[in-house]
Amino acid sequence: MSPLGYIIKRFFGNLWEHPLASLGSFLSLFLLYLLFDLAWVSSLTATKYYDQKISELEIEVFLNDEVADSVVPVVMEAVASMDGVGEMELVSREAARSYLGNLMGVDLLEGLDINPLPRSLVISFTPDYLTSARLDALADDLRRIKGVDEILFPGNWLEKAEYFKKLIRDFLLLLGALILIAVVLNSVHSVILSARTRLEELVQLQLLGAGPVFLTIPFILEGVFYSLTAAAVAWLVTQNAARILTLGEVAVIFPGVTEIVYFCLAAAIIGLLGGYMGVRRSL
């Protein structure tokens, strides 16, 4: 038999000669990767949902009654020229009245000689300005424009949303890091167990002149195999579970194919490192 033949035979031998131990190693890694996948998908879905909600944010800028209608376009031009301002809509006094009427179901201003409702500008923002810090700064700038009376925007809500987003992100990062550590430890110990069942063979082959590469490769392959297959199967399960899982109006977001390929490659590298560390600790 050639060295390559031995390595391949030993690799499959490691997998099949102790099927329950192999199954246990695979399942524990699979469950860890499944947890990681769920955390990843949750993170992407939550981020997407958050971005969607944040993108609907608007500031309403109420104009002073003293601003003549002829000056309104000038104010609008000043607002439009500011960084971060996306779309802008002028709500006239009549439109405000109509909106109020629709809201209340009755025209509250009926009988009044004048319409006391203010004119306002409803402003949406470019995506890079959708943070509480930048919107606060933008609101301050808007207040300085002559003719602006009052500004309404849900600043507190945005701050809380950002806080929870950071909290969720930190939690998922911590969870992901813990899972990765658990994956590495699991790979190491799976390979240590596998190597210990073959310790006599490894020691004797070492005495007969087997080099470190020859002895470690089957176990490194074993580590790669467990980690890679567990990661790939965990993804398949996650994807298929999403088909039957609906979260109402929230669409479940998955990473792209490229990211999944990178993820599987990373899993293979983790398995490689785990296999190497495991067999080096055993020899």
Binding site: R198, E200, E201, Q204, L205, Q206, L207, L208, G209, A210, G211, P212
Partner: peptide, 24 residues
């Protein structure tokens, strides 16, 4: 280890620390 492996290939060992591999 690599150099040792080369030297060990020229040695035949019997008994003591050298044993048959029982699962082969």
């Amino acid at each position: 280890l690599v150099r040792l492996a080369g030297l060990r290939r020229k040695i035949g060992g019997v008994g003591g620390i050298f044993t048959p591999i029982s699962n082969l």
